[in-house]
């Protein structure tokens, strides 16, 4: 987003025609390998099913040659057109990509067209080079090592293989994500500390980002490390708000976060008073 430091990971920024910038995560080779293997498996299942169906139909007619002919045609079309046809009709997805939450897009974020879909899938055969040969009873079985595609993915940006480079496409992660909502602070000591903060407390954007990132993750960090991390910002905040020297920095960050994101000063006070009276009754 504006002013934010660009992340050093596999996120790519896309600007929509509505002039909104959003990010996609580009899929790496291992995620794509799963979809590739699944698609290959499905192709072979399809060929075998076609073979069995034609065998049942034409086998009765004693026409085994037709069975071989149709199986060969099915083999040709699945090998060369499976990916291209599916990606054109399913908005950049094959069955394998759909199951692995992947989608092919143009590298400007727009959907791919038929030429891109067919071309990138034709060129996948170059990405599978070099081939190793496995000998079974004097016949050579070619096995693709995928080395060229893999090499290209690491050398060229956005994990694009040779076919992606030529077609101007990329594969992104396209899977639903959970919305976890706003992290809540429940420690009474932090809520108590929040009442000691100024009534007119306002945090700027970068501080707000740092606080929410910290509070969301703090419970996954060991206590000692948590205090160490919190001390960098906590010390400055303690001085700013004239708090005692023995203030717990971890709780201070939680208190500032609570006041900035969750509740106003009066709400915090009401909560603390409510908690106390509940404790007295008990």
């Amino acid at each position: 987003m504006n002013g934010a430091i660009k992340q050093l990971d596999n996120r790519i920024e896309i600007v929509t025609p509505e002039n909104i910038e959003f990010t996609y995560r580009v899929a790496g080779p291992f995620r794509r390998l799963g979809a590739y293997l699944l698609d290959n498996l499905l192709c072979w299942v399809f060929i075998i099913v076609i073979y069995i169906i034609t065998l049942l139909v034409f086998g009765v007619l004693q026409s085994l040659g037709t069975v071989s002919l149709l199986a060969a045609v099915a083999h040709f079309f699945t090998t060369w057109f499976y990916g291209g046809v599916f990606e054109s009709l399913w908005n950049g997805q094959t069955l394998g990509k759909r199951m692995f939450g992947l989608r092919v897009l143009s590298d400007d974020g727009q959907p791919i067209n038929g030429i891109q879909a067919i071309g990138r899938n034709f060129l996948r055969h170059a990405d599978t080079l070099p081939w190793a040969y496995w000998t079974i009873e004097e016949s050579l079985i070619p096995l693709s090592t995928l080395q060229l595609g893999l090499l290209f993915m690491f050398v060229y940006g956005n994990y694009q293989r040779l076919g992606d480079w030529a077609a101007g496409t990329m594969v992104v992660l396209d899977e639903p994500q959970q919305l976890y909502g706003v992290a809540r602070v429940t420690e009474p000591a932090a809520l108590q500390l929040a009442t000691q903060l100024p009534v007119n407390l306002v945090v700027n954007r970068s501080l707000g980002r740092a606080l929410s990132a910290y509070v969301q993750r703090r419970l996954r960090v060991p206590v000692a490390r948590r205090f160490e991390m919190a001390s960098h910002l906590g010390e400055a905040l303690r001085e700013r708000y004239n708090l005692p020297a023995n203030t717990n920095y971890d709780l201070l960050l939680c208190a500032v976060y609570h006041r900035a994101f969750i509740a106003s000063a009066t709400e915090v006070l009401d909560d603390v008073v409510g908690e106390r009276s509940k404790g007295v009754k008990e």
Binding site: I14, T23, Y24, P176
Partner: peptide, 15 residues
């Protein structure tokens, strides 16, 4: 000042 995980969710939703 939406939290980072909400922003991430919005990126994914808009995408």
């Amino acid at each position: 000042q939406l939290p980072p995980n909400t922003v991430q969710y919005l990126h994914q939703l808009v995408g």
